[in-house]
Design a protein around this nucleic acid. Structure first.
Lengths: 338, 338
DNA sequence: AATTTACTTGTTACCGGTAACGCTGTCAAT
DNA sequence: ATTGACAGCGTTACCGGTAACAAGTAAATT
């Protein structure tokens, strides 16, 4: 059985409170006492019981992180940054992988809320369904949305500018001379909508008509990009350039193209989004849009910890943080070397 | 304030215990009562306080996972498998990233042990320093080692056969006609030792002398592989084939080779280990050794949960699980297409 | 009818901490 | 000498659950 405060107190003939105060660096403790307590605590190998502490203080020093795909280096990088930031502030991080499933996400979120002090969520929930999260926020849960936003939610949200990101890619294709630019859309979440919006804006701005037949859904996984592209090739009438929902989808699309013996970028140009790890080392280095994922994670962690540790609702309560997106030109788009 | 058992009990005019028993599916509850309790619980949006429960039962339903590099798809895949397995058994997973730093690993492990029911560790601690973990085990901590083993520790360990894996790669190079096969070694952990051992065994078995000058340390990160290879090229007298500590290191080495305008595999053949995600899509697809990481994670989670949930020390207490390694031949080794 | 048995519910204490308040003793100010 | 302030430490109650035991009631047995 591990040592408790009471054990130390008994050993020294003082009260539990004295020991507790010492452990928590309370000022009203005599240096001599402090010394004696700390010595015995160390000697008895004392470690505070976090559950008891959490029960008492209603503070677990635990953050929850909910991501749709831990295997995607994008979220792994975010997770790593959050973990580092949290640890520095004395928090641990509980990670939950949802595989883009909104239903299981909501179930997990409910479970996590009751053992953590707050959650950082990259949500798979449709942005026009803020109901569940609105209720949680009303009940006082501390939430921060990361990567994907949900409108009308009074909580901090940390994202990139996905409209700009989508426009960046589309514009780049236009400048390279493409006129039939296709878009593989993600699922029904903000980033997919925004990237699609950016795509349309760029087309319009450059005098190109938006053509519905050039947009297909593919989700955010490689498998989705692969099957969407394969079907498109089978159906015929495919575009000369593909802007995919994200890098895994782009890689899936390129796999379908390779199988069809089509050359990227000569036959079809491809670009993704999110700057996956090793995207530069692929057989056809992937043109994409990058933004500072570490910053994303760091900001989210900071905001959440701020929400937790400040009593009054500060102006951070529904702060929006936007990290700027940046076009990364590599070979898959067919641009001459930069 | 969230609803508690007492709130529900008061609402219904029953005791807390009746509510508690209902929530925990205790059999001795009248169906009518159960129904009434559950209805009110749902209506009042009740969620059990996990800290209180943990304090009472000394069971947190939380597992800790300690990995050296979350950005490495290898560990992300393991983490994902563990998380799925744990969730299915009613556990959540707390993830800690150590960046291969043994000191911070031990610090974190201490902290995690007091809020989890047990840990799964891919340890960066040297295998001949089992002291810290031996003490924890003696104190009754539930530990399972994954990926990397530490000898003489009475806890389950789940790994692949790294000696065989190292031999597989080395033998493959030998069969391709290489005589000067170099090895980039990882850090001072079991897998690095074992892969090195397999390398030496294969050399000896095929009548090749082990040459110390053909082995250099590079750690387990891409950066280490890069700088080790770059230095080697600068120093001259490099081998015709490189067996790297793991896939990131192999990728780093290939980057150094590319910078030196050397062709892989024509000028130097390369192989890694661990089958990183997208290793097949690199500009030079990476020859590597693969094993079932999902199985690795699943087994580790099962064993840990077994340790936690069974009272007596079962024979699982120091079970070894070995998943078989398998050579994956791609282009970086220079073999003709398979 | 008396006793046993099974089923259902309640009581009490405790898990290991912490908050809030109270008590004692010392020392400076009046 | 009295008072007040303050430092240092203790008491009590409570956080929200659960284990262990007790007890009441209805059905079954003798």
């Amino acid at each position: 059985m591990p040592t408790t405060l009471a054990d130390i107190a008994a050993e020294l003939g003082v009260s539990k409170m004295t020991v507790s105060r010492t452990i928590n660096n309370h000022p009203a403790i005599h240096p001599n006492t402090r010394e004696r307590v700390l010595t015995v605590a160390r000697h008895m190998n004392y470690r505070p019981n976090q559950h008891a502490r959490a029960l008492s203080t209603n503070r677990a020093h635990l953050l929850g992180l909910v991501v749709p795909d831990l295997m995607h280096s994008y979220y792994a990088e975010i997770a790593k940054a959050i973990e580092a930031e949290a640890r520095a502030a004395g928090y641990e991080v509980l990670i939950c992988n949802t595989e883009e499933d909104a239903a299981s996400e909501l179930r997990e979120v409910e479970a996590l809320l009751h053992r953590t002090d707050g959650l950082i969520i990259a949500s798979a929930v449709a942005p026009n369904q803020p109901g569940a999260y609105r209720r949680l926020l009303r009940e006082g849960s501390k939430l921060v949305l990361i990567d994907r936003s949900i409108e009308g939610l009074k909580c901090p949200q940390v994202t990139t500018d996905n409209v700009a990101a989508g426009a960046l890619v589309t514009e780049h294709f236009i400048k390279l001379g493409h006129r039939r630019i296709g878009h593989l859309r993600g699922t029904n979440v903000s980033v997919a909508h925004d990237r699609w919006e950016g795509y349309r804006q760029a087309l319009t701005q450059h005098g190109l008509a938006y053509d519905e037949t050039l947009v297909r859904a593919c989700g955010f996984f490689e498998s989705g990009g692969y099957s969407a592209m394969r079907d498109w090739l089978k159906d015929g009438n495919h575009p000369t350039a593909i802007f995919a929902a994200n890098d895994p989808a782009a890689i899936g699309a390129m796999r379908a193209l390779a199988e069809a013996k089509l050359n990227v970028p000569r036959d079809i140009a491809v670009a993704g989004m999110g700057a996956i790890h090793y995207g530069d080392l692929l057989s056809v280095p992937l043109t994409t849009v990058d933004w500072d994922k570490t910053e994303l994670g760091r900001q989210a962690a900071k905001l959440l910890i701020g929400l937790i540790e400040t009593k009054e609702q500060k102006r951070d309560a529904d702060r929006r943080v936007i990290v700027p997106p940046q076009l990364v030109i590599r070979q898959s788009c067919g641009a001459k070397a930069t």
